[in-house]
Design a protein around this nucleic acid. Structure first.
Ligand SMILES: [Mn+2]
Ligand SMILES: [Mn+2]
Length: 546
DNA sequence: ACCAATCACGCATAT
DNA sequence: GCGCCTCCTG
DNA sequence: ATATGCGTGATTCAGGAGGCG
């Protein structure tokens, strides 16, 4: 696929767009340093700004000037000096070897070391691995400054740009490449109305908490790979971040669950429980019930299962409590209601093993008697996304704050639907006119092609599939599926069966394929239970190789 | 959709 | 040389 | 034998340059 040409200063335009937006709408949240640095930068000649932005987009704070050559920046030396005079960079900073070691390749170091060490030593160094060489460099120079063959340029305190990215995107995982990918046509976003009156981050405290959170998060991987003490310490610093925004709480909660889980793996159950107790979100209570049961605290475990059943915080938790409660009660000869277990209908198919995977194999096999599509979550998700397109992207307070959102900020909030009553539509009604609705959805499919929507996987949908699905699936079934998705749009977006089969003589069936050794996942089973309750035809297809 | 959820696969346990 | 990796680019 | 839990791997713009072993 060909991509459109971008202007030579594309990145600078993107940068200005981002920065100037934040200056215009969030200036009151900036501190003096941030404000000062941007205004200094923006007042410089374009060439100098562009050099600075090129550095911002690259990894690290230290660069070799000879490796910062760009066709669109003519004056290498001058723009660097302008930046230094403005206090935004340092030229040839006074740094120990370990700071600059990574700027040069192994051969380059060996070359500069040639007149500093003996030829024998040089030969020994050549045999070292890169990491070992870096360590050895420290010994060789032992505090002395290396004499480097190129000018080094150091970005001074580039952290202000994190603040800007956070205010612009509402997170720190998106950055300037979003602009590029959009402009290249690789990402497309809906043209929703942006709400400039409601801000995601409302005050400096919330902003600071999030910045601190992200700074902490850089350590997470290392901490998770380490000892329980480190994990607990890390969780403690998470806790001290503050108690402010929902945004922060959700992130911290996620991390806390992951930390607790790792404590379990490290065989520190008591510590894990302590962390789980600080979590509201599933599966915190599930993990506690398991740990208590394993520790022999049967009564407490069952009590917690009872709590979960009385006020489940997710469907998964509810099913777990019913099941696990029954199992542990029975093991200990205690009373507990037996959960009704749903066993979906199944069939066995013998297939020749081919290179495309079981699902495709079954689909090809069934194509002889009708039409079979490998859709997984994409059929119901896709139709859902197209049908509710205008509702999902309807303007609502605080829902959209920048042009790079694939969903409204509050899509997973419990009041999402109630805030969009005007856009509500009833599938029970609309899907009774399948021809008309197919026209609408196919037109939207064309018009919105490729635009990011959490429910729509464009590459899997086609007008023919939309057409067949609307013809064959009755309105009541659509309504039943959609209402379950609305109940928990994040959790219930997945778990739908692999295949949809349209037999030649009418009707349809949803089929979950299971190869040898595979089995239904929990969310897949819950969907099937829902299908059963609403007379939606479904089946598990077990495959045996012959 | 925050190097994560999501699915299949494969092993280790408990009954 | 090779294959794998990380970084950078538009 | 059947269940269950847990950990694993691939996948996420696409293509090029350069470093490393
Ligand atoms: Mn599947
Ligand atoms: Mn399957």
């Amino acid at each position: 696929m060909s991509t459109p040409d971008l202007p030579p200063d594309y990145y600078f335009r993107n940068f200005c767009g981002l920065v100037d937006h934040v200056r215009a709408h969030h200036d009151d949240l900036l501190n003096d340093t941030e404000r000062h640095q941007v205004s200094t930068l923006r007042a410089l000649p374009a060439q100098a700004q562009m050099r600075y932005v090129r550095m911002l987009m690259r990894r690290g704070n230290l660069f070799r000037l000879d490796r910062l050559q760009y066709a669109e920046i003519a004056d290498t030396a001058q723009s660097a000096q302008t930046l230094e005079a403005a206090g935004l960079v340092r030229l040839d900073p006074d740094l120990p070897v370990e700071a600059v070691a990574g700027l040069y390749s192994k051969p380059e170091w060996l070359h500069t070391l040639a007149d500093k060490v003996s030829t024998e030593q040089l030969r020994a160094l050549r045999a070292l691995k890169r990491a070992e060489l870096d360590a050895e460099l420290r010994n060789i120079y032992s505090g002395d400054r290396p004499c480097l063959p190129s000018t080094i340029i150091e970005l001074r305190q580039p952290a202000w740009f994190d603040t800007f990215k956070l205010l612009y995107f509402g997170n720190l995982h998106q950055d300037l490449t979003e602009f590029v990918l959009r402009d290249l046509g690789l990402y497309r976003f809906e043209n929703y109305r942006i709400d400039r009156d409601t801000r995601l981050i409302e005050n400096r405290e919330q902003l600071q908490e999030l910045l601190d959170y992200y700074r902490l998060r850089d350590l997470r991987e290392e901490v998770l790979a380490g000892q329980p003490e480190g994990i607990l310490e890390y969780e403690n610093s998470l806790q001290q971040l503050g108690n402010g925004s929902r945004l922060l709480c959700k992130k911290v909660e996620r991390d806390r669950l992951a930390l607790a889980r790792q404590l379990e793996r490290l065989d520190a159950p008591a510590e894990a429980v302590t962390l789980y107790e600080r979590c509201m979100a599933p599966p915190a209570r599930e993990r506690r019930a398991r740990l208590m049961s394993k520790a022999g605290e049967i009564g407490a475990s069952l009590k917690l299962c009872g709590d979960m059943l009385a006020s489940p915080r997710s469907e998964e938790e509810q099913f777990f409590a019913a099941d696990f409660g029954y199992r542990t009660a029975r093991k200990n000869k205690l009373p507990w209601p037996q959960p009704q277990k749903y066993i979906p209908p199944d069939a066995l198919i013998r297939l020749d093993q081919d290179e495309y995977g079981v699902e495709a194999g079954v689909a090809a096999h069934l194509d002889a008697n009708g039409e079979c599509h490998y859709v997984e979550n994409t059929l119901f998700g896709g139709i859902f996304g197209l049908y509710y397109w205008d509702l999902i992207f309807a303007p609502a307070a605080g829902a959209f704050t920048n042009p790079f959102q694939y969903r409204p900020h509050d899509l997973y909030e419990t009041d999402f639907l109630s805030l969009r009553g005007a856009q509500w539509r009833d599938p029970e009604v609309d899907f009774t006119r399948p021809k008309q609705l197919a026209d609408e959805l196919i037109q939207r499919w064309q018009e919105k092609q490729g635009i990011a929507n959490p429910f729509v996987a464009w590459e899997m949908l086609s007008p023919e599939l939309i057409q067949s699905a609307l013809e064959r699936i009755p309105a009541a079934h659509w309504a039943a599926v959609f209402s379950r998705i609305w109940r928990a749009p994040r959790e219930n977006r997945s778990g739908l069966p692999d295949l949809i089969f349209f037999p030649a003589d009418g009707g349809y069936e949803l089929l979950e394929v299971k190869g040898p050794g595979d089995r239904l996942q929990k969310n897949q089973l819950r969907w099937m239970q829902h299908f059963e309750a609403h007379q939606i035809p479904h089946k598990v297809i077990n495959v045996e190789w012959r």
